[in-house]
Lab assay of single mutants.
Amino acid sequence: KRLCLVCGDIASGYHYGVASCEACKAFFKRTIQGNIEYSCPATNECEITKRRRKSCQACRFMKCLKVGMLKEGVRLD
């Protein structure tokens, strides 16, 4: 089984260019469509796991980008 490159949960397929789970796919889409900017309360190096993926949105979004999710893949309509 493929794992989500962002949080390590089971991937539902390839989304925005990267093997990812439904939760991270939806999080990435919401962030881009809403043009949301997050800031990390710590040092921008929070560990993102299935259990902790909700704890820091800034680091989760940075990890989405780091593993290769493409903003261009999100439709803005």
Results as ranks from 00 to 15, higher is better:
Lys1Tyr: 12
Arg2Phe: 14
Arg2Glu: 09
Leu3Arg: 08
Cys4Arg: 01
Leu5Asp: 04
Leu5Glu: 07
Val6Lys: 07
Val6Leu: 01
Cys7His: 00
Asp9Tyr: 05
Asp9Gly: 08
Asp9Leu: 04
Asp9Glu: 14
Ser12His: 13
Ser12Tyr: 06
Ser12Leu: 08
Gly13Pro: 05
Gly13Thr: 04
Tyr14Gln: 09
His15Met: 06
Gly17Gln: 02
Gly17Phe: 03
Val18Glu: 05
Ala19Val: 13
Ser20Phe: 04
Glu22Ser: 08
Glu22His: 10
Ala23Ile: 01
Ala23Gln: 11
Cys24Leu: 01
Cys24Asp: 15
Cys24Gly: 00
Cys24Lys: 00
Lys25Gln: 15
Ala26Trp: 10
Phe27Leu: 08
Phe28His: 02
Phe28Ser: 01
Phe28Met: 06
Phe28Pro: 02
Phe28Thr: 02
Lys29Asp: 12
Arg30Glu: 14
Gln33Thr: 08
Gly34Trp: 10
Asn35Leu: 06
Ile36His: 08
Ile36Asn: 08
Ile36Gly: 06
Glu37Asp: 05
Tyr38Trp: 14
Cys40Trp: 00
Pro41Ala: 13
Pro41Asp: 15
Ala42Glu: 13
Ala42Thr: 12
Ala42Tyr: 05
Thr43Leu: 07
Glu45Ser: 08
Glu45Cys: 05
Glu45Trp: 00
Cys46Lys: 03
Cys46Tyr: 03
Glu47Val: 09
Ile48Arg: 04
Ile48Thr: 08
Thr49Asn: 12
Thr49Asp: 14
Thr49Val: 09
Thr49Phe: 07
Thr49Pro: 07
Arg51Ser: 09
Arg51His: 10
Arg52Met: 10
Arg52Phe: 11
Arg52Thr: 13
Arg52Glu: 14
Arg53Lys: 12
Ser55Asn: 15
Gln57Asp: 11
Ala58Ile: 00
Ala58Val: 01
Cys59Ala: 02
Cys59Ile: 03
Met62Tyr: 04
Met62Gln: 13
Lys63Pro: 00
Lys63Asn: 03
Cys64Leu: 01
Cys64Ala: 06
Cys64Phe: 02
Cys64Ile: 04
Leu65Gln: 10
Leu65Asp: 03
Leu65Ser: 04
Leu65Pro: 01
Leu65Tyr: 04
Leu65Cys: 11
Lys66Gly: 07
Lys66Ala: 14
Lys66Val: 07
Gly68Ser: 00
Gly68Phe: 12
Gly68Pro: 00
Leu70Met: 11
Lys71His: 09
Lys71Pro: 08
Glu72Gly: 09
Gly73Cys: 09
Val74Lys: 09
Val74His: 07
Val74Leu: 12
Val74Asp: 13
Arg75Val: 12
Leu76Asn: 13
Leu76His: 12
Leu76Thr: 11
Leu76Cys: 10
Leu76Phe: 09
Asp77Tyr: 06
